[in-house]
């Protein structure tokens, strides 16, 4: 499923280049990234990144981009293939409308993570802000995945139509793993939470379930991959104690009209 893992496995052989991003406005930086990809580089290490937006925007290549520093908004927007590793925090809009590929953030991320995402994976080691995974959707063999190591803010999985969101809640106080309005308007997909939450934090369109054996196997695989890539210690996490949020209906707004 992970289309970028090949880049990890043969790290020794890949054609690598380092780029000092400090001098560049985003437009120039992204042009340089594209031209490096066109010159055949498979791994691009960006040093000194400081808020440049749109890194990885619309890229369809199976390349690996390592970001040292804090990338700006819309990291990996419309992305379709690359593997991006951020060795710091990220800002808003990570993986916006992403189609495939992978983004790993070894730190916090801001608001609107994985909006309208259709495939690929986003791993955030620490916390995420508001509106994560809004309108995620799956299509055929594309199942988007967001895993958050810490907590998530309000409106997690709002309008969610497909895919998987996992929140691990490492270091988060009990009952605070997600914010309010979680899963409002949800009509597909699944949200797994490592801690139980009060019903008052849920939207009207979701219900709480216990995890089954399939869920546990799926969680074990994801958590192990997450730990390997983000470096987060997950030893205290027991997938069998997770709760699962599913939509009450696949057509929450089917009875709103008369003709």
């Amino acid at each position: 499923m992970d289309k970028s893992s090949h880049a990890l496995q043969r790290e020794e052989e890949v054609k690598t280049v380092e780029l000092d991003a400090r001098r560049f406005h985003y437009r120039e930086l992204n042009e340089r990234i594209k031209s490096l990809i066109n010159s055949g580089y498979e791994e691009i290490i960006l040093n000194g990144v400081n808020g440049q937006r749109y890194i990885g925007d619309g890229l369809v290549h199976k390349v690996r981009i390592v970001i040292n520093g804090v990338p700006g908004n819309d990291l990996g927007v419309f992305m379709d293939g690359p593997f991006i590793m951020v060795n710091d925090n990220a800002q808003d809009g990570v993986g916006n409308t992403m189609n495939s590929g992978m983004i790993v953030v070894r730190g916090h991320a801001g608001d609107v993570i994985g909006y309208g995402m259709r495939g690929g994976k986003i791993f955030i080691r620490d916390d995420v802000g508001y509106r994560t995974g809004i309108h995620m959707k799956s299509y055929r063999d594309q199942v988007p995945v967001i895993v958050v190591g810490g907590s998530a803010g309000d409106f997690l999985g709002e309008y969610m139509a497909g895919g998987i969101i996992v929140v691990l809640g490492v270091g988060v106080n009990s009952g605070k793993i997600v914010g309010h309005y979680t899963g409002t308007g949800m009509h597909g997909g699944v949200i797994y939470l490592a801690d139980s939450i009060d019903q008052s934090r849920l939207g009207n369109e979701v219900r709480i379930f216990l995890v089954n054996d399939d869920d546990v196997r799926r969680l074990e695989a994801l958590i192990s991959e997450f730990s390997r890539l983000t470096g987060l210690d997950v030893s205290g996490i027991d997938p069998e104690s997770f709760i699962k949020l599913l939509p009450a209906s696949h057509r929450p707004y089917g009875n709103m009209y008369v003709y």
Binding site: R118, K137, Y139, Q142, G162, H250, R251, Y253, G254
Partner: peptide, 9 residues
């Protein structure tokens, strides 16, 4: 790019 038969919201 959404599954057949689901509402497109």
């Amino acid at each position: 790019m959404i599954p057949q038969g689901t509402d497109a919201l």
